[in-house]
Amino acid sequence: MAIEAEEPDRRDFLVLAASAFAAVGGAMTLWPFIQQMNPDAGAQALASIEVDLSPVKVGQAITVLWRGKPVFIRHRTEEEIAVAKAVPMKDLIDEYARNAALPEDALATDPNRTKDGHENWLIMVGICTHLGCVPKGQAQGDSKGDFGGWLCPCHGSHYDTAGRIRKGPAPRNLEVPVYNFVSGSLIKIG
């Protein structure tokens, strides 16, 4: 066996360069395989829906499906609005509005949970911020919890008439999605 003299510098550089290339290539190959699990073009395209609110009477609520999630739309009574407005901020578990249309540090006052001029409409993603169940309180016969809003049946989180968490394990108020009044009683969510 003829063992030739080593050229350590060149060989080390070569091994290093080749290994680096192979490693970077391997890492870049992972990208498509991770990316494929994200929402596809079809899911992204269906990301907004339009809802006509005109059939929903005062005191009634409807649930619509948006991006696979239930969206609660409640036509609040004057009394419910008044109760929600009267709550002092210090009574809230989560003091932020959680409204996608507002800055993150906006406070959870009742007006910040709705749209100006449309305060009778409360529109929220109907998913408990604890572990993702759908709270009760949409149907007429449902228990609405201790605060007249919603009650999550899974672990007993109570939400008030502005969808704010008041009692129970949930950490945050129900989320308000991006929506707009397109015309009259027609809204576009997303």
Binding site: V15, A17, G25
Partner: peptide, 22 residues
């Protein structure tokens, strides 16, 4: 392009390693 460069590099590494023996 990536594969071409890497193949050449790997070939050089292989040649260097194999030059130690007949």
């Amino acid at each position: 392009l990536y594969l071409l460069i890497t193949t050449v590099l790997l070939y050089l590494v292989k040649r260097k390693i194999w030059s130690r023996i007949e």
